[in-house]
Nucleic acid binder design. Structure first.
Lengths: 258, 258
DNA sequence: CGGTATTTTGAGTATCGTCAAGGCCAGTGG
DNA sequence: CCACTGGCCTTGACGATACTCAAAATACCG
């Protein structure tokens, strides 16, 4: 379903996206030529599984949901994409997981065939894609570790820390207010429950339990303030993240170096 | 810790590894020149996290464990590598997860710098690496779905199905005996418990519960016979896999097409 | 055959899933 | 403008499941 009528003249800037700025100018020009900016509303489907999937996408703004559609119609969230993240399968068949907009979102899309042509001629773009995929893989594994926590409290704590680590430069999701961090939870309770392998009620109870123990404060259902991040990390079973790693300014800002 | 004394003359065949056989002969020759076959015993460390990680590895034989070392010394298994799987970070820093041999194993190693040089000149090898990473990513996500199952029984069922799907052409792990499948569980109970986010006792109980209900039969602690694979898939919450997809001969042998 | 590690079983408790009900908010239609 | 509706979040009570601690049984190895 091509939306060719969608402001084809949009400049399609991507120099500020991580990695793209350092590409050679020729490559950037080629990419700009096949690039198109699209806007989606929350809940809209961006790419379907099994469809031809002729497109490679880069999130520019907002949050996307990577999900698995179960045969009974239920949808299982299997990942979140934020600005700079990509989706689409290069040199390969259809997507294995459909993509939906979790919030209003802007997405840069490239026609797959053309993108692959450029890829074959630019080792820089190639390296960018490799690094991207390797990072995705590590993130998926980090998520596995969170999910492997036996208790809901621990999984939830790990999820909150993941949000801090990963989304601290996105939108207004993470705001550092002195010693505490204010955090917006970008998905609904039902989705979060699916993601963490629990029921909505358990999520609610676990969140309020963390609040009762003073680790966090619930300002709104989807807005929490993290008060004792060390205790939260311990709860998550990742004491190595308890220290400085989280605050973007206070030290090695690398991802889990485990 | 270079083991240059390790039979340097070994031919290092990799033509039969998935994907490598179709590479141009020049690329294969270059790869063979920097390739070295190494042998590890079960439990041995193959690559450490944080270390320079100057090596790209391809599993030739046996099973490797990708794990996260927790600060308290416990080790959390985050993935299993079998013949054809790769590890190592291209154009990037150290590994994020150490690699250990789960069984006696043979591994093909390439010096990273040299491998990257070849990569820059061969778009075919590049595509191979991209596909490899995309497959890894999908597998990690499939594992996330398994881990998100609220009940241990469901997670265990999903794990057994994953073993069937993924390892059916590896070693003697999976043997199809008429209507049933005989399956070797390649990791210990403590590792399995960590992997599935449960305790050893819960794993044991869940396994025997599946046996009591006739879905499987436990021949040895690490050898089970799957009797009702459809029921097992339903237990795992993946009815779409209940059908033909599992048996390598009876239809589309693709990975989950979710 | 004996010793050790692994796996299994048992009993008690904590946690979580399930069912049910209530509150909050946004959108709809009178 | 206001009642109504439906989705989402929360709370409560109860039963099922899983974790904890402890001990027994089994498999593994010399």
């Amino acid at each position: 379903m091509e939306q060719t009528d969608q402001v084809p003249g949009t400049p399609c800037l991507f120099e500020d996206l991580p990695g793209f700025g350092t590409l050679p100018e020729a490559v950037r020009r080629d990419l700009a030529a096949i690039c198109r900016l699209r806007t989606y509303e929350a809940g809209q489907t961006i790419a379907q599984a099994g469809a031809p999937s002729d497109v490679i996408g880069v999130v520019r703004d907002g949050i996307l949901r990577l999900q698995k559609t179960l045969p009974d119609g239920r949808q299982h969230v299997v990942g979140l994409l934020v600005a700079g993240d990509m989706f689409g399968r290069l040199f390969d068949g259809p997507l294995h997981f459909p993509v939906e907009a979790a919030t209003d979102a802007k997405v840069l899309t490239f026609r797959r065939a053309a993108f692959e042509t450029i890829l074959l001629r630019s080792s820089e773009l190639d390296r960018l894609m490799l690094r991207h995929l390797m990072d995705d893989l590590d993130r998926a594994r980090a998520w596995m570790i969170i999910l492997a926590n036996p208790k809901v409290r621990g999984r939830l704590a790990g999820f909150l820390l993941l949000l801090c680590r990963r989304f601290h430069r996105v939108d207004q999701l993470v705001a550092i207010k002195g010693p505490t961090i204010r955090l917006r939870i970008p998905i609904s309770r039902p989705d979060l429950a699916h993601l963490l392998g629990a029921r909505v009620e358990s999520i609610s109870r676990a969140l309020h339990a963390l609040a009762d123990d003073g680790l966090i404060e619930i300002l709104l259902p989807d807005l929490v303030e993290i008060r004792r991040i060390g205790a939260l990390a311990e709860e998550a079973g990742e004491p190595d993240l308890a220290g400085p790693a989280l605050m973007p300014d206070h030290g090695a800002g690398r991802t889990a170096s485990g």
